[in-house]
Computed example of a mutant assay.
Amino acid sequence: MAQNYRIYINEKTISITESAPEGINQSELIGVEQFDFSKIYFQVLNSTSNQFYVITDNAKAFLKRIIKSVTLIEAAGGLVKNKKGEHLFIYRNDKWDLPKGKLEKGEGPRAGAVREVEEECGIEISSSGKKICKTYHAYTIKGQVVLKKSHWYKMKYTGKGKLVPQLEENITDVKWFTNDGFALILSNTFPSIIEVMEESGLLTDGQEQQQG
């Protein structure tokens, strides 16, 4: 099975894949020869296109090459489900998001994911379960391109506590959503969050087609 990895730059996506999708536009292809991710980052950021592809024989090895070329920041977060079957989302910087944050020194991804959810939402997680996926998001710190690798886990909450947004992290709302409410999320969220929702099985085919 061909491997595929995605790196997100704001609303844009670089897909690192071993098989070219049908109907690909030549302008969306990024050459692998003399590939410099820091330069590619700014080219993608300033492009009018939102989707780009790197076609390679070994997608995993190519991703590792990118990771070695920039500063890597590890983070973790969770997709929390309550007893009613609702899922927890936060509203941060005018976007719907999932709770997550950077790992502390010596902290494992699962422990960090639980801590971040609890801190950002004001609840105590009952249990953490299956790992959903890893996502990659590139941005700049003081002009230098960095790559954030986020580990995502399924979690359960069985309590009845009041949700409390962590205002100092620019979170202004924390809310439980039923599946019928995902249209609001999909209309104003990040591509990486949509990937987590897809990988967790949260989206139906119809919802995926609407957001795509």
Rank of each mutant, 00 (worst) to 15 (best):
residue 25 N to I: 09
residue 209 Q to N: 09
residue 195 E to W: 01
residue 39 K to Y: 05
residue 103 L to F: 10
residue 100 K to T: 04
residue 132 I to Y: 07
residue 84 K to I: 06
residue 97 D to Y: 10
residue 8 Y to R: 07
residue 1 M to S: 15
residue 40 I to G: 01
residue 208 E to A: 12
residue 94 D to R: 08
residue 172 T to Q: 11
residue 156 K to F: 07
residue 79 L to D: 05
residue 139 Y to S: 11
residue 91 Y to H: 14
residue 201 G to V: 09
residue 192 S to Q: 13
residue 92 R to E: 07
residue 33 E to V: 11
residue 23 G to T: 04
residue 129 G to R: 10
residue 118 E to A: 07
residue 74 E to T: 00
residue 202 L to P: 06
residue 99 P to Y: 02
residue 85 G to Q: 08
residue 125 I to Q: 04
residue 71 T to Q: 06
residue 33 E to G: 01
residue 152 W to L: 09
residue 90 I to N: 09
residue 128 S to I: 12
residue 5 Y to C: 05
residue 12 K to H: 09
residue 117 V to N: 02
residue 134 K to Q: 14
residue 103 L to V: 06
residue 138 A to V: 02
residue 32 V to P: 00
residue 179 N to Y: 09
residue 35 F to I: 05
residue 112 G to E: 01
residue 21 P to M: 08
residue 63 L to E: 03
residue 69 S to T: 03
residue 129 G to K: 13
residue 87 H to R: 15
residue 79 L to C: 07
residue 81 K to P: 01
residue 25 N to T: 08
residue 5 Y to Q: 06
residue 99 P to H: 05
residue 54 V to Q: 04
residue 75 A to S: 15
residue 9 I to Y: 03
residue 134 K to S: 13
residue 48 T to C: 04
residue 23 G to H: 05
residue 83 K to W: 03
residue 135 T to H: 06
residue 169 E to R: 14
residue 145 V to R: 05
residue 88 L to D: 08
residue 155 M to N: 14
residue 172 T to I: 11
residue 123 I to L: 12
residue 146 V to N: 08
residue 19 S to M: 09
residue 39 K to E: 13
residue 39 K to G: 03
residue 189 T to M: 04
residue 179 N to V: 04
residue 203 L to T: 00
residue 67 I to N: 04
residue 55 I to K: 10
residue 52 F to A: 13
residue 82 N to A: 11
residue 93 N to Y: 06
residue 68 K to P: 00
residue 153 Y to N: 09
residue 136 Y to A: 03
residue 194 I to T: 13
residue 194 I to K: 11
residue 183 A to E: 14
residue 41 Y to T: 08
residue 123 I to D: 02
residue 34 Q to E: 12
residue 154 K to S: 13
residue 22 E to F: 13
residue 138 A to Q: 01
residue 64 K to P: 02
residue 52 F to Y: 14
residue 167 L to W: 02
residue 99 P to W: 03
residue 52 F to G: 12
residue 55 I to S: 06
residue 76 A to G: 02
residue 110 R to Q: 15
residue 191 P to R: 01
residue 108 G to L: 09
residue 94 D to C: 00
residue 95 K to M: 14
residue 14 I to F: 12
residue 66 I to Y: 01
residue 55 I to C: 07
residue 11 E to M: 10
residue 146 V to L: 05
residue 66 I to L: 01
residue 132 I to K: 06
residue 112 G to S: 01
residue 140 T to M: 03
residue 28 E to T: 11
residue 173 D to M: 13
residue 98 L to F: 08
